[in-house]
Design a binder for these strands. Structure first.
Lengths: 213, 213
DNA sequence: TAAATTATGTAGCCCATGCTACAATTAAAA
DNA sequence: TTTTAATTGTAGCATGGGCTACATAATTTA
């Protein structure tokens, strides 16, 4: 969830800055701490853990995103775990410190509502993919969603697996198939996307009408 | 999401009442309408549809709940479908009509933030169940979550299937097993829960230490 | 540059759950 | 009632994708 630039100051006004190392825990679901965080730099991973240690990544947050460890304003604590990816700087605010700002500036409240709503939509789409997509659609969708300038960088197959909800081996297989078909190229933690359109076709379960040559 | 009682008036102030028949569509994902709805009576089903017509129910809303068809305040429209279950009365507000109220009463904004946050947590837990639970855990969890006075009423196996993300046949099988074990009794669209503790044990993948006789 | 670590490829088995099909029951409509 | 429709039970096959296991390749550390 991205926060509008001119709202940053609210965080700086009432929050304190914190720095985290790669993979350092920011929040565990059994914790009782409450706070609202703004990502200044680095990356943050929101994930679930099963009884037997399995992990599911539900959201990756980058610079400008906010997140809360309690359900923003409610008593209930978020049933998620949060950790840093790479060196990461955050600003943390007490929940209570925010209340006066809400009163002073309804725009801030509205911004929050927008951000949480987006999070809802994101989760909804996750469920859609979980329930409706097969392994090819899941991987293809992941690639399209995480493409930057024709590349998907810095993901291992293992990491992709926890995001799309599949086995590492299955992810590897799908990616191999895609690169055999020439839709992507793989170079150690880097996937180059050659054929965007075909990936889209896979997600939408269409056959490509025009050969892409 | 349940709305605090003294906030009802905001809806009545700026909204108009609408009545829906059983299974009548309230909102389709391809629509462009925006609104915030309050459930006065009846029940509302929020669901997804796949390309080949499969349905997934992600939320059931009852009296006092609110929901929005656009992401509350954002431009993006919610990627969901919404329909009435049984005769249902709603109050609909224009999104824009709400802005002045946010300014006037920050409590309303905070209430909204709480409600959407809860929705987020709900979706998060859905994902947890989708990814981590097997068929027995899914059905047992469903029963516990929808129990009212020892009963789960008015769900067909088919409906349960769209909620827990399983096949109707599989749901029937699991329920048959549970009733064979005596944990529940089934009487046509009514499930009587005899052994709460054992259902919990199934969800948590524990063995019952004490026999429940 | 050797050794250790991390990432990826591939084979093959296995099992949970989906799916089709049909029977049996119950409820609703005619 | 009788008929029709909706719900639930059961069988059995089909299969997607998980899992273990190990090989190969790339990267990092020593």
């Amino acid at each position: 969830m991205k926060l509008d630039k001119d709202l940053y100051r609210y965080f700086y006004n009432c929050g304190t800055s914190k720095r985290y190392r790669d993979q350092e825990t920011i929040y565990l679901e059994e914790e009782k701490s409450r706070g609202i965080y703004l990502v200044i730099s680095g990356k943050v991973r929101v994930f679930l853990i099963s009884l037997d240690g399995g992990e599911v990544t539900i959201e990756l947050l980058e610079q400008g995103s906010i997140f809360g460890t309690s359900s923003m304003v409610t008593d209930s604590l978020r049933p998620v775990n949060i950790e840093a990816i790479g060196s990461t700087e955050l600003v943390v605010c007490d929940l209570e410190s925010f209340y006066p700002y809400f009163k002073e500036s309804p725009e801030l409240a509205i911004a929050f509502i927008q951000l949480i709503s987006k999070s809802c939509d994101h989760l909804t789409n996750l469920i859609r993919k979980d329930r409706f997509y097969d392994r090819n659609q899941k991987v293809a969708a992941f690639l399209l969603e995480n493409e930057k300038e024709g590349k998907v960088a810095n993901f291992t197959h293992e990491q992709i697996a926890t995001i799309v909800g599949m086995n590492r081996v299955t992810v590897s297989r799908v990616l191999k198939t895609l690169s055999d078909k020439g839709l992507v190229e793989q170079k150690h933690k880097l996937i180059i996307i050659n054929d965007n359109a075909s990936l889209k076709a896979i997600v939408e379960k269409r056959r490509m009408s025009q050969p892409t040559v």
